[in-house]
Amino acid sequence: MEPTELISDDAASSNDALNRKVALTVALLASFMGVCKIKDDNINQAMQQAQADKIDHWGFYQARNQRQENAHIALLQLRLAAPARPAAEQAGYQKAIEELEKLEADQAKKKQDVQKQARDDQANYDALNYRDDQFDLSDAALALSLSMLAITTLTRQRWLYRAALVPTAFGVFYGAAGLFGLPFHPTWLTNLLS
């Protein structure tokens, strides 16, 4: 055997080993990204529901507020009109005033309940968005990693494979944080990208 043949065989074997590493890494990342995508889609659906619930509750709040205002206006009108009415009508006015006072108080209480629900919906949305941001960061980092791995296959540069492991680690970390609900969130980065 010629020495150049040995070098060629070693280089081919080395390139095959690199290609196997890249292929295995890509397959694992694609599988991981698929699992993260399913969870992220479920979180997005929950975010949409929380947003719809919040809008509905604020709509109910406005309706309760309008009912309370209408009751208050009618109550004021009755209170102003009652003293000028004959004594025989005073009992009817007093009964109407009492009913409107109850209605106004009832609408105020219901308005507070709906307001609390709307604020809870917003808190739920914010918590889900926190996890959605984790998946978004994971997707971006893993997409960068896959691009670097593709270039590694073309150029056969081992250093590029090792460099691709940096965004891989970042992407897997934030994907796992999103999957398991871990409290890791680079707020500065998400604010920068928002």
Rank of each mutant, 00 (worst) to 15 (best):
T155W: 01
K109N: 00
Q117P: 00
L189F: 00
K102Q: 00
R20K: 11
W159L: 03
L6E: 13
M33I: 13
N129K: 05
H72I: 06
R119A: 12
N15P: 05
A177T: 11
N129T: 06
H57T: 05
N70V: 05
Y125F: 11
Q115Y: 13
K102N: 09
L6R: 15
N191R: 15
V35A: 07
A140N: 00
Q94R: 13
R156C: 02
Q115I: 06
A96H: 03
Y61V: 07
A30N: 14
D126G: 00
G34F: 08
L103N: 00
A176D: 06
L128K: 10
L103Q: 11
E89R: 05
A74I: 04
D133Y: 14
V35H: 05
M33A: 05
I73V: 10
A169Q: 10
Q157Y: 12
L154V: 11
N19E: 12
Q90P: 00
T155F: 01
C36D: 07
A63Y: 13
L103S: 01
Q117D: 08
A23P: 01
Q112A: 15
A118H: 09
L189I: 08
D126Y: 02
G34H: 07
Y125E: 07
A71R: 04
K95H: 03
Q68F: 02
K54D: 12
A163P: 02
E5N: 04
K110D: 06
P167I: 07
P3R: 05
T153W: 06
I38Y: 06
W58S: 03
A163G: 06
N65F: 04
A88D: 10
A176S: 09
A105P: 02
A71P: 15
Y93L: 02
Q48I: 03
P86M: 11
N42C: 08
T152G: 02
M1G: 03
S14C: 07
Q112V: 12
A81T: 14
L28Y: 12
L144S: 10
V166Q: 14
A27D: 15
D106E: 09
K95F: 08
T155Q: 09
T187V: 10
A123H: 12
A87C: 03
V22K: 00
Q62T: 14
Q45V: 04
S145T: 01
A108H: 15
T152S: 01
R20G: 03
L146A: 12
N129Y: 01
E101R: 06
R64K: 13
Q157P: 01
N19Q: 13
D106R: 14
P83W: 07
L76E: 13
S145I: 05
Q107M: 14
W58R: 09
K37V: 04
M148K: 06
R20F: 09
K39R: 15
K110G: 01
T25Q: 14
A84R: 06
I55N: 05
V22W: 04
L165C: 12
L28F: 10
A71D: 10
E2C: 04
D133G: 05
K21D: 06
R64D: 01
A87R: 09
H57I: 02
Q66N: 14
Q107R: 13
A108K: 15
R131A: 07
M47H: 08
A123D: 04
K95E: 10
L18E: 10
W188G: 05
S13E: 11
V166S: 08
N44G: 11
L179N: 03
V114A: 10
D133K: 14
